[in-house]
Design a protein around this nucleic acid. Structure first.
Lengths: 341, 341
DNA sequence: CTGAAAGCGCTTACAG
DNA sequence: CTGAAAGCGCTTACAG
């Protein structure tokens, strides 16, 4: 690639000092129209673009106009919708967004954070990986603009935007109970992940409030790739089937729906999922879920972050979005069999 | 936020010159172990991170270790999967990825490109918006590392990675013809979008090769938001229904499947879509598609781009990925009614 | 209205 | 083994 032209190159071609070019580029007053015209022509001839790095290095010393989004996996529609929400607000404020996937792995998170911070992003939205909080804690301590997304870190402080995992789970399970179920299985992520812990807590609360014992064998936690849940559900449904399922994450729901269809049980066993899935309304029966609002999560996080970047010193904020059950069929199937106890 | 510490701050605390700090940070030899230890302690006390902008400004003059992905919409699973593929290859090469959505709008594309280029991204993967090629052409001319994705620009030159839109469409329609259909409708994006034009061309080729006339009323182009296609299909299916549909984009397929189910026609009218959709295997009948390979598209583009960034001068490359029909049911429905002609 | 000097936080030669 | 000077591409005060 040809070297990008600098202000000096433009100045040379226009026959002015490079400071004059700077004035034209920044639309400062006090430049004669004739000079402006000459400089602008040189700029367009050379395809000059101001180097923002150098500019900001001198100017603010620290602002780059870039914010980072550290997440588990951009190809998960939940996260890519959040990214879109962040991007909307960011671009309106003249920021761009770098995104980095960690797959929830502490080491990958550390690498992504290093890469972002050494490039001096002005702030971060972070879905924290489990067991990798030390570095994040240090950044929060130094008041680096940082908004946690979806999951809570293991320490206090810092802004946070997430769904009400526990409340949503509770609503989902209450919905199943209201349709007559008492034998409801939980399938979800590793409980060391904050949201998974909260969702199983909501499940437990709903059962307990209804006077139903929580049976350990009905609570299945696992940490699997998106494609692994279908088979995991086959195992889970091999014997002594529950009358209903609460699937605590979008990939789990997707796997469960596939497994139920594989087994021809989609009209026998009720299902409510946490987080919406594509085509939930087309599959028969439709999939009842407690949806999240990822675009809104992204927007709120970006707004908070931009506020911090521009210097807001208010106490840490916590934004927790709630939502209600969307009934589409699968969650309204009554229990087909009664068990002893 | 507290000001981030600089090498000078570290040097002051460790009682050395800031050049020595630079040596430690860059793990250059020739520093006594005692000094290294002192500097490292100061670094960790202050939470120092080298400022990569300043470093690269001095070093290469131009490299930032950031590449940009300019696309239509990150929340479209097709694009977010491409992003994931780009990210994989990029992070292995120590690059981070900024992503910017344009919604295919030339003005938004110009804004995103300006934002990226002024921040001196080292290269770009671009899904070009229609009618906004001038700036991209100039960048290609100056040999700025640039890989086009999914859509071709209106000019020659530049690297390119995309699916074989025409060939895939042809396979899809041939599949329907092979199952006895002669009255096949096309639903797709604005034909001024490259991929839409190619896909309708493939549709036309398949019909023509089979000796079937292309009827203009059977070719519906529209530029709609994701949610608009369901209703649009209702219109398209209001009267004189075709026996089969070729839906030329994932959102169109999603809308068509919903419309067919709304009308109870999902087992009457055959459907093959271009690009895969979530739950295509769970919906009944399953949705037959010609899938794309977005992760692979992303990886290939990033590999090409990183090659250019590191100086490859080989002629522009064109990577065109093909794929075959995945039969899941909807595309194998025979024609139910015969029409005159 | 225009320009020469200093400095943002680093690295690259050069000295000692 | 350690440091003082110059410079990356800009902007910020100061002059004229």
């Amino acid at each position: 690639m040809r070297r990008r032209p600098t202000m000096r190159d433009v100045a040379l071609r226009a026959g002015v000092s490079f400071k004059t070019v700077s004035r034209v580029v920044n639309a400062e007053a006090a430049v004669s129209p004739a000079v402006v015209a000459r400089v602008e022509e040189a700029i367009s001839d050379l395809g000059y673009r101001r180097d923002d790095r150098a500019r900001r290095l001198r100017q603010a010393g620290t602002h780059t106009g870039v914010i980072g989004f550290v997440l588990a996996d951009v190809s998960n529609p939940f996260f890519s919708a959040i990214l879109r929400g962040i991007e909307e607000v960011a671009s309106a404020g003249d920021f761009v967004v770098v995104a980095g996937s960690t797959d929830g792995d502490p080491e990958r998170q550390a690498r992504v954070l290093d890469a972002f911070i050494s490039r001096r992003v002005d702030g971060l939205v972070v879905v924290p990986a489990r067991g990798a909080d030390a570095q994040l804690h240090a950044e929060v301590e130094r008041r680096y603009p940082l908004v946690f997304m979806d999951l809570e870190p293991s320490f206090e402080g810092g802004d946070l935007v997430r769904s009400d995992h526990r409340g949503g789970a509770r609503l989902a399970v209450e919905h199943l109970i209201a349709h007559g179920h008492r034998d409801i299985a939980f399938f979800g992520d590793d409980p060391r992940v904050f949201s998974a812990a909260e969702r199983v807590a909501g499940y437990t609360e709903a059962l307990t409030a209804a006077g139903i014992d929580v049976e350990p064998r009905r609570v299945v936690h696992d940490h699997l790739p998106a494609s692994g849940w279908r088979e995991r559900l086959h195992e889970g449904l091999a014997a002594e089937r529950p009358t209903a399922l609460f699937t605590a994450q979008n990939f789990v729901t997707a796997g469960a729906v596939r497994a139920l269809h594989d087994l021809g049980l989609e009209r026998e066993i009720a299902l409510v999922g946490f987080d919406d899935v594509e085509f939930a309304d087309v599959v028969r029966p439709g999939i009842s879920v407690v949806p999240q609002h990822p675009l809104e999560l992204g927007r709120r996080a970006a707004e908070l972050l931009l506020g911090r970047i521009s210097g807001s010193q208010s106490p840490p904020e916590r934004v927790v979005l709630t939502s209600a059950v969307v009934a589409r069929g699968s969650g309204e199937i009554p229990p087909r069999r009664r068990r002893a106890r």
